[in-house]
Simulated assay, not measured.
Amino acid sequence: MKFLIKKLSHIFLIIYLSLFFISCEKEFDTVIDVQKPSFQVVSVSPKDSVLFNVEDSSLVLKIEFTPTSTINTVTTEIINPAGKSFLNDALTLYDNGKSENGDQTANDKIFSNKIFMKSNDLNGNYNIKFFVNDNSNSNKLAAWSTFKFRNGQSNVAPVISNALVDPDTAVVTDTIPILTSLVVQDDNGLNDIKEVYFIVYRPDGSTNNNKVFLYDDGNLTRYGDQTAGDGIFSRIISINQTNEKGTYRFEFRAVDRGGLQSNIINYPVLIQ
């Protein structure tokens, strides 16, 4: 009887362990059983420098997949050097063999379409994201590319004027907000401005070289700028009783996307 009980216990243990491992195996399979993409990217373009062409300003965006790839649709999003969307909406690429889409051969798994660059488009790097809708009927980021655009215009350095620090003299017993602003002009347009900033020099002439950036975004609450895109760049900073007493120097500058620097304006600020 004891032998029978022991044998049954042994059989039960085997059955229990078998069920346990089967259950564990099922959970593991569920975790790793993820549907794989049904496509593979071979190449994308453009990915080099692009110079504006007056006679033909079109630029072909292209992505090639392996012949065995299953593709429903391909779309792209383009981000300009200012970090904004270059197009109003996503651009669809086609594998239809039509020249108006920049596609040479239909059904060859090379999807293409054209965009048209303008002479006033920003110089700099444009980022392209390629999205694929495959047999899973969901959009997936398949690839991305970057091309550098030159609009062909002569680059002119920005000019700054009317620097303001208000107040520029303060007796500090508590935290005091200070409005700084600057007028910036650029013959290549305000979109060509990469950054506007000042560097603070302490009364002893030392500095940490940190750039304090000014903005022309109309965000009155955050930066103190009243109107977006009017060429007046602003920034609110604050000082308190821990600041060293004496005359500081605020050095204002602007830099465009071609790397050209503006004139420099030095503004004295007295903290007492």
Rank of each mutant, 00 (worst) to 15 (best):
V60I: 13
K62T: 13
I63V: 11
F65S: 00
I71G: 07
N72I: 05
V74P: 07
E77Q: 13
I78H: 07
P81M: 02
P81L: 05
G83I: 10
G83S: 03
D89A: 09
A90P: 00
Y94L: 09
D95K: 04
K98Y: 10
K98M: 06
E100I: 12
G102E: 03
Q104H: 07
Q104I: 07
Q104T: 12
T105G: 00
A106W: 04
N107D: 15
D108W: 00
I110T: 15
F111S: 03
F111M: 04
N113Q: 10
K114H: 06
I115E: 09
I115T: 14
I115K: 10
F116N: 15
F116V: 11
M117F: 15
S119I: 14
S119Y: 13
N120Y: 14
D121M: 04
I128A: 05
K129L: 12
F130T: 05
F131V: 06
V132I: 15
N135R: 14
S136D: 14
S136P: 03
S138R: 11
S138F: 13
N139W: 14
K140Q: 15
K140W: 02
L141I: 14
A143M: 03
W144R: 14
W144K: 13
T146H: 03
K148T: 15
F149R: 07
R150Y: 15
G152F: 07
Q153S: 10
Q153N: 13
S154E: 12
S154F: 10
N155Q: 14
V156L: 12
V156T: 11
V156G: 01
A157C: 02
V159S: 08
I160V: 07
S161L: 03
S161P: 02
N162D: 13
N162F: 08
N162Y: 08
A163F: 09
A163G: 07
L164M: 10
L164H: 01
V165K: 12
V165D: 07
P167A: 06
P167C: 03
T169D: 08
A170F: 10
A170H: 08
T173S: 12
D174V: 06
D174W: 04
I176Q: 10
I176L: 15
S181N: 06
L182W: 04
D186N: 15
D187Q: 13
D187W: 02
D187G: 09
